[in-house]
Amino acid sequence: MADKTFTCTVLTPERTVLDAEVTSATIPAHDGEIGILRGRAPLLCRLGIGILKLEGCPDPTRLYVDSGFAEVANNKITILTEHALKPGEIDATKVHSDLQEAQNRTASTQEEQDKRRNDMARCKKKLELV
């Protein structure tokens, strides 16, 4: 089994969130989820808002990731993101109230609507983890 693993590193500007050996990773790319196994061809992609799912590591297997980049090279996947949260780090009550606020917000311009949609997506993804 050992030969099926690869390294997964999750980095934020402030800290290294996770550094583990995994057997599979599902990354939330900007246009949908991408599953990654050992031996994947080099990839560089932008991330959207979503959940990073990891298999085969003892630590948290799910992480909330809010945009960023992912790089796969030489059986090493590196996730760069400005926000990464473990399930335990999410404050459910706060997310609920944020979601309420976003849902009740009036958005008239295109920008406001985009922001509202993104905020709602963020909250919903966070709630999936709680």
Partner: peptide
């Protein structure tokens, strides 16, 4: 160390 290998870009490099 990967200049010779082709990298999958998503989206296109310029957009990235």
């Amino acid at each position: 160390g990967e200049a010779n290998t082709t990298i999958d870009f998503s989206p296109e490099p310029a957009e990235l």
